[in-house]
Computed example of a mutant assay.
Amino acid sequence: MTEDHVQRFLIGDVEVLRVVEWQGPFAPAAALVPDCAPEVWQAHEDVLVPEHLEARGGRAVAALQTWVLRSGGRTVLVDTGVGNGRERPGNPLFHRRQGDFPGRLERAGIRPRDVDVVINTHLHADHVGWNTLDAGGEWAPAFPRARYLLPAADDRHFGPAGGYGGVTQPMDRLVYEDSVAPVHRAGQTVLWEDAYRIDEHLVLEAAPGHTPGSGVLRVESGGERAVFVGDLLHSPVQILRPECSSCFCLDPAQAARTRERVLERAAQERALVVPAHFGGTGAVEVRRAPHGFSLHRWAA
């Protein structure tokens, strides 16, 4: 799909739209998922190339995107990408980025005032960037009517109470101050722990490991199910080998345990798995396999 394309599908009565901020070759596959041996990537090139892995060059293909859900009369955004004009030193893709993501949302029929709920599955830079806009030299909430649902454990870790993540990543303080703190000051945040029900179809559940507060969004409607897993998965290779965590996981062992648990339930329930960064059609059903899970059916 092109960056300006909007993908739509239904989960029962819940409409899902996918709006892409950017997609393309992202990082060397061996660096993105360092626990995964090169021969595993090679053995599965038939399902990875070209939408998730370059045919030549060895880089993983990824997308920065927002999933928009229309449920129970509400418009819900799942993650908000990188944003424009951010100071992100050390990351050329994110640093002072300029793009037309708000225009893409509007062309998909989503105006800022239409948004009722914003979910940040966790508080990394590429999941909170469009939380805010530059309003005359100050950052302000981009969605003036929305409740922003933030994982409390991440807010403690990445916020001032946790020393901005111990400043292990220089970006952490910058990300919090331009994309999270302004929403707190506006009184629009809800901090949640363990689980949080949004409506009869949507519930957030804790899924720690990638970050302390990483969460997944479960959707159930009309006998159909999906789970939006954020950065629990960066590549389909982690479905095939769920013990392999990404280089961005703060607790790789816990992330692997969480990934196994979430994928096991998805396989049992025949739920569509919707990661934050997959290219291609972006979502897939999984089934249990001898050494992990298999890619059963991609979303239409």
Rank of each mutant, 00 (worst) to 15 (best):
Y196L: 13
A206L: 12
R113H: 12
F94C: 04
I198T: 09
A43M: 07
A153F: 04
G230C: 12
R197L: 01
P160Y: 07
A161M: 11
A195L: 09
V68W: 06
Q98F: 08
D116M: 12
A29G: 13
G99H: 09
R56I: 03
R185L: 08
R104Q: 00
Y176D: 02
Q238F: 05
A283V: 14
L69G: 02
A267Y: 05
A43C: 08
V262I: 15
P275K: 05
Q254S: 12
G90S: 04
R156D: 08
I239K: 13
G137E: 06
F94G: 00
V115G: 01
V40Q: 01
G280L: 09
F293I: 06
A206E: 09
L240A: 07
L272V: 10
A181R: 05
H291D: 13
N91M: 11
G165R: 04
L93E: 08
E39M: 02
E205Y: 13
R185Q: 10
R8I: 10
H184Q: 04
E54P: 12
E51T: 11
R218Q: 04
N131G: 07
G81A: 03
W139I: 03
V284K: 01
D194Q: 14
G58M: 09
A142D: 01
D154E: 10
V78N: 11
V117P: 00
R156S: 03
H124S: 08
G129I: 11
E205S: 10
S221W: 07
L53C: 09
G213T: 03
S71E: 13
V284Q: 03
L174T: 00
A283W: 06
H296E: 15
V128N: 05
W67V: 00
L150F: 15
M171T: 05
L150K: 02
E243V: 11
L232M: 15
P92C: 07
P182D: 00
V219W: 04
V262C: 04
H122R: 02
P50E: 13
V203P: 06
E21H: 06
D199W: 11
C244M: 06
E87T: 11
E54C: 14
W130V: 01
N131W: 06
L240D: 04
S214Q: 15
E260Q: 15
R18C: 00
G215V: 12
E260T: 11
V117F: 09
I239C: 02
F278E: 02
H5W: 12
L123V: 08
T211M: 05
E205T: 07
R56P: 01
E106H: 06
G279W: 07
P34R: 04
V19G: 01
T66G: 04
T66V: 12
V78Y: 13
D155C: 15
E177I: 06
R287A: 15
T75R: 05
G83H: 03
R74Q: 14
L123N: 04
R197V: 03
R8Y: 10
L133Y: 14
A60L: 12
H210D: 05
P242M: 10
F26D: 03
P102T: 00
V284C: 11
P34Y: 05
S221F: 10
W139Q: 15
R113L: 13
H52P: 06
E177Q: 14
I198S: 07
A266L: 07
G166Y: 10
G230L: 12
P102C: 06
L250I: 14
E45G: 13
G85R: 15
R197E: 12
V76S: 03
L295H: 09
A161N: 09
R113S: 14
D114A: 13
R156M: 05
A142E: 02
H52I: 00
